[in-house]
Design a protein around this nucleic acid. Sequence first.
RNA 1: GCCCGCGUGGUGGAAUGGUAGACACAGGAGACUUAAAAUCUCCAGGCAGAAAUGCCGUGCCGGUUCGAGUCCGGCCGCGGGUACCA
Length: 857
Amino acid sequence: MKKDADMTRYTPAEIEARWQKVWSGNDVFKAVRSADKPKYYVLEMFPYPSGRIHMGHVRNYTMGDVIARYKMATGHNVLHPMGWDAFGMPAENAAMAIGGHPKDWTYGNIADMRDQMKPLGLSIDWSREFATCDPEYYGQQQALFLDFLQAGLVYRKNAVVNWDPVDMTVLANEQVENGRGWRSGALVERRELTQWFFKISDHSEELLDALDTLENWPSKVRLMQENWIGKSRGLQFAFESINAPDGHEKIEVYTTRPDTLLGASFVGISPDHPLAKALERDNPDVAAFCTECRKGGTTEEAIETAEKLGYDTGIRVRHPFDTAHELPVYIANFILMDYGTGAIFGCPAHDQRDFEFATKYGLPIIATYLPSKEADETLTEAYVPAKTEKVFYNRGFAGSAHQTGLEAIDAAIDFCEANGIGQGVTKYRLRDWGLSRQRYWGCPIPVVHCDACGVVPEKKQNLPIELPYDVSFDVPGNPLDRHPTWRDCACPSCGKPAQRETDTMDTFVDSSWYFARFTAPRAATPTNMEDAQYWMNVDQYIGGIEHAILHLLYSRFFARAMHICGHLPASASEPFDALFTQGMVTHEIYMTRDDNDRPVYHLPEDITWTESGARLGADGPLVEVVPSAKMSKSKKNVVDPVNIISAFGADTARWFVLSDSPPERDVEWTASGAEAAFKHLSRVWNMSEKIAGMSGAGEGDEDLLRAMHACIQDVTLGVESFGFNAAIAKLYAFTATLQKSKAGAAAQREAILTLAKLMSPMTPHLSEDIWARHGQEGLITTSPWPVADEAMLVSDTITMPIQVNGKRRAEITVPADMSNEDVEKTALADAAVIRTLDGATPKKIIVVPGRIVNVVV
RNA sequence: GCCCGCGUGGUGGAAUGGUAGACACAGGAGACUUAAAAUCUCCAGGCAGAAAUGCCGUGCCGGUUCGAGUCCGGCCGCGGGUACCA
C-alpha cells in the first residue's frame, strides 16, 4: 500500500513548470500603460551575455523580482523588463580564440542565458526584451548620436590610447598586464589618436549639484561621484620664463594650494605639454626622456604608481613674488596633461609626491606652514594636515599666521588677484567621455570622412549603419579598417567617394539609455514621449556597486542629453529615483601557469581538494588558490546556478540566495545550505498539506494570529528596506511557531495562507501552489499584500534589561504602561540588582521607556 | 598612489546609540527505526565552574557617552573603482 506522504511530496520541478505556464498564459507580467494604478518601474542592471548565468545574476534578478512582485501586490502597475548588454570585447576575443563570429557567439549566448534564466520564474515582461547588438537598437543609438552631434554635445580631439607596437593595435586597459600587451608581451606605449568625445564636462556642475536630490541613492555612491567630478577652487597664474623657446615665455599653472606658493621649489610640466613637445623636437635627450615617460599603460593607477621621473630642462622661471628667486622647470612623468594646465609648481613640503621628487633630484624642501610656531622646519616627510585643521604659517603671505588651509587658500587667491598674479578659478577633475573604440563588435559611429567635406554626419534615413557580417579576426586590429567594401561609401553631402568612420562606440553608450528604450522598445524613434512620460523614471534600480561611478554617471549625463534633444522629459533628467547597490558574489580563483609562466584559470567544479591542497582533477597538478574576487568569466571563478535549480528547484535557489547574507554585502559563495533551504520549503509545503486536512477548534488562536501580524509587519518592513535576509529569518521563526501551534483549523489556515503570501515574492511557485491547494480564487501573484493589524502588534507587558554601570545584570517584566518611577522602583527591588549594588547608592538611574534601565553608581 | 566601502562564534550573518551572537549552516546529544535515510526534540561565543554565576569578547589603539558592533580620530587587513572589462 502506498503511503500518503509519497503522494503529496513537494515536487518543485513539476510545480514550477506548471505555474510558469499559467503566468505566461495569462500575460500576468505584461506591462501596459494604465491610469488605474500608480506605475512602478523596477530595473536590474542588464547582463552581459557571457553564455552562462552565475550566482551574481541570480542574486541580482531575484532581488529585483522580490521588489517587482511586492509592488504588484501593493497595487502598482509594474514594469519589469530584461535585455542584454551585448556588445563588447569578449565576443571578439572568443572569435579570435575559438573561431566563429562575434554575432553568432553573442546571440547563441543570449539564447543559452535566456533558457537558464526563465526557469527562475522572474516576473519579467519578456515582450520588451532586446539586445544592444540588435540593429533596431543600435540604429536608434546612432540617431541619438546624430542628434547629440547637432546639439553640440559631441566633438573630436586627440587622446592617448594603449598602443601595442608589435601587434600594431590599440589595447584596452584590461589587455595590458604589467605594462605589456597580453598577446604580444610587448611593452605598451601611450599614443595619441583622434577620437570622438561627449561633452560631459559641460555638465559637471549640474551633475554635481543634482547629487543632492538623489535621496534614495546610497550616500557612498553620491560621495564617489562627487569626488570623481572633483570640483576644486584654485589659482591659475603664469610663471615668466627666463630662457624658454619662443612662444613659451609664460608657463600657466593651476594649483589648489596657492597658500603654499612660497614653498615652491620647482615647476613641473607634463611630457605632453606643448613646451615639452617643443623641446622634444630639437633635443634628443628630451625626446628620449619623453619616450621613456610614454611607456606603460594609460590608467591613472599605472601613472600614479610609476616611479617618479624628472628631466631638468635647464629652463628657469621667476617666482611671481620675487623675480630674483628662480625655479627650475622639470618634465615629470606624473603630471597629467588632461587636468588643469598640464603644469604645476612643486611644493615638496606639503605634497608627498613632490617631496619624493625633490629628494630624488636634490631640490629644496621649504615649509610654508607647520603644526605650531615651535615646530621644527626640517621635514622628513611631507606635512599634509586636513584643510580644516588650524596651522601656523611660517611663510604665509595672506590672512593671519594661525589659520586653516581653507582660510589660507581663500586669502591667497584674494591676495593674488589684488596684486595681478593670476585669477581664482574653479576646475573639475571630470574629463570628457571618449567614446571611440577601434573595435568591430560595437555600434558603428554614423559619420563619413570626405576629402572635400570633412567629417559628415550620416543621413538619418540611412540608419541603421549595420555592421558587415563578412569579417575575419585572423590578424590583430579592427576588421572594419580592412573591410573591402563596407568602409567605402558615398559622401552624404557631396556624393563623392568617401570613407566610413571605422571606430565603434564604447559599450557604456549602449548601457546609458537602455532603461529609456525599455519604455517603448519597438518605437521607430529612440523613445516614445508618451511612454517615456508614463514609465520614467526607474523607481528602483538595482545593480552592482562596481558601477557606482562610470555607468551611473554616464546614464545621468545621457538622460540630460536626451532631454536636450527631445527624447526624454525634463523630469527624467535624473533617471533613477532610487538606487540599490548589491554586493558582489565572490569566489576563490584557481590558477596554474603555462609554459610561458602566464596564468591559466580553472573552474571551481574542476578543482578537487586533497590533503596536499587544491588539485586540478582528483590527482592532477596542484593549483594556486587566489583569494576571493568578483565572479568573472575571465578568471573562471564562476559557480553555475543551473545545478542547484535542477536539483532543488528555482524557489530553493531564490530563497537561499536571499536568505544568507545582507544584499548590499559581498558574499563568498558556498554551496552548503542550498539543501537546507530546500528542506525548509518542503516543511512549509508539508505543513500546508496537513493544515488543508484539518478541521475543528483548538487552543491559542490569538497567540498564533498575533505572531502572524508581527510577521506581516516585520516582513513588510524587511522587503521595503532590502532587508531580505532579516525578513526570511522572521519567516523561519513564524514557520516554527505555526508548526508548534495547537490553534484551530481556521486560524491555522489563515496563518498558512498569510505565510504563503509573505513568502510569495521569494518563492512564487511554492506560494502559488499552496494558494491553489487551499482552494483560493485566482492567483496569489495578483492577490493583495496583507496588512498588519496594529491592535495585534501591541502587548500588555514588556521585558526590560537592567544594567548596572552599563553591564546587564537582570531583567524585569513590567506592564507596558508602567510609569518611569515605578519601573525604577521595580528595577531597584530586583534581587540581582540588589546583589550587584552590594549596598552602594545609585548616583543616577536612566530609564529609556520600553527599552532599558541603567543604574549608575 | 588616489577615491569609496567592509571587518561580529567553526561558517553565513542579526542587532532605530540600549540584553551582542536573532535566524540559518556545519557540529554534538537524544527520540523514532532491526538499522539507515527522512523527520522531530534539545545543546552550543571563549575561559573558569558540578551548578548558580563570574570574567573576557564585535580587526588593533585611543576618544565621546549613563551606555559603543553602531558615533569620532589614528592604524592594520580585505574588497570595489581608477575614465578602453562589463
